[in-house]
């Protein structure tokens, strides 16, 4: 499979169709990979594909340092493609401005990341070239089993849980930096006139930051789990993200990353939207 990816990358770079291939190369330690930006056909041998290819490379599509290199081709798993789809929906990139080298994926990580057993995009749903055997999408998976479990706790237990978890946050903003959906040129966390978010990393300010971070991903997060992987203090951020995903699915029957033509849920409305909580 990797031979075919390299061959295609070489072909695209030689013909000049793309200026850079964004992919994975072996990391400095065994069983790790890191992103690589291949700009010359001689370098395609650096590309690898294995179960340690965690990173969601779609992040780089909206980073100026990368987009200034020219038209990209990107090695993307099914989940990464979902991120690309949201970027297209939100007019951050045009579909024809990126070549998607889709790879079928049985799951990454050893042991598997928690997103993989509940993945229904083992075969990417959008690609220009597909590598690997097509895998039929899983059915009858419950994506929100852990969320449902958490919801059973009492409000007090939930508050204490988050108090404990969020007290660990050091406001390093790694979750934001790694997120393909966090592309605002000036993040609200960096604005100081007015200062919406408290900058020091005490628990009260951490609540605000983490609520707003999750909130700004509502209906957009495709659960690539990168924020959680980047978090140096292991806050279970995907619980917050997926709670909102569940809420959006239940209330507005929408899941991000599947349909690049669909309007994002919070730019849209229906007169008959549920409002049981409004008096």
């Amino acid at each position: 499979m990797i031979e075919q990816i390299r061959e295609k990358a070489k072909e695209l770079l030689t013909s000049g169709e793309v200026k850079v291939v964004i992919g994975y190369e072996n990391g400095g330690l065994p069983e790790t990979t890191r992103p690589v930006f291949v700009t010359s056909p001689d370098e395609v041998e650096r590309l690898v594909w294995n179960k340690y290819c965690y990173a969601n490379l779609a992040t780089f599509l909206v980073r100026k340092e990368v987009s200034s290199l020219g038209k990209p081709a990107i090695v993307a798993k099914g989940c990464d493609v979902k991120a690309i789809v949201v970027l297209i929906q939100e007019s951050q990139i045009e579909r024809e401005d990126v070549v998607i080298l889709g790879v079928t994926c049985e799951g990454v990580g050893d042991p598997l990341l928690s997103k993989c057993p509940i993945c229904d995009v083992n075969t990417p749903r959008e690609y220009d070239y597909l590598f690997g055997e097509e895998i039929p999408p899983k059915t009858d998976i419950n994506k929100f089993a852990d969320i449902e479990e958490f919801e059973k706790k009492s409000p007090q237990e939930r508050f204490e849980f988050w108090e404990k978890q969020l007290s660990k946050c050091v406001k390093c903003y790694a979750c934001r930096q790694v997120c393909p959906m966090c592309y605002c040129e000036v993040c609200i966390a960096d604005k100081n006139q007015p200062q919406w978010l408290e900058t020091s990393s005490h628990t009260r300010g951490n609540f605000h930051w983490n609520l707003i971070r999750a909130w700004h991903l509502a209906g957009r997060c495709i659960d690539c789990l990168e924020c959680e992987r980047a978090c140096p203090v292991d806050i279970p951020l995907s619980l917050l993200n997926r709670k909102l995903a569940k809420s959006v699915k239940e209330r507005f029957d929408y899941e991000p990353g599947y349909d690049k033509e669909a309007p994002p849920p919070f730019t849209d409305f229906k007169p008959q939207d549920p409002q049981e909580f409004i008096k």
Partner: peptide
């Protein structure tokens, strides 16, 4: 209408975090 969607989602998030709704 837009606000209603946002409030619905955010309310769910606050509730999830154990806020007294």
């Amino acid at each position: 209408y837009h606000a209603r969607r946002r409030f619905a989602g955010f309310r769910d998030l606050l509730e999830f975090c154990g806020f007294e709704m």
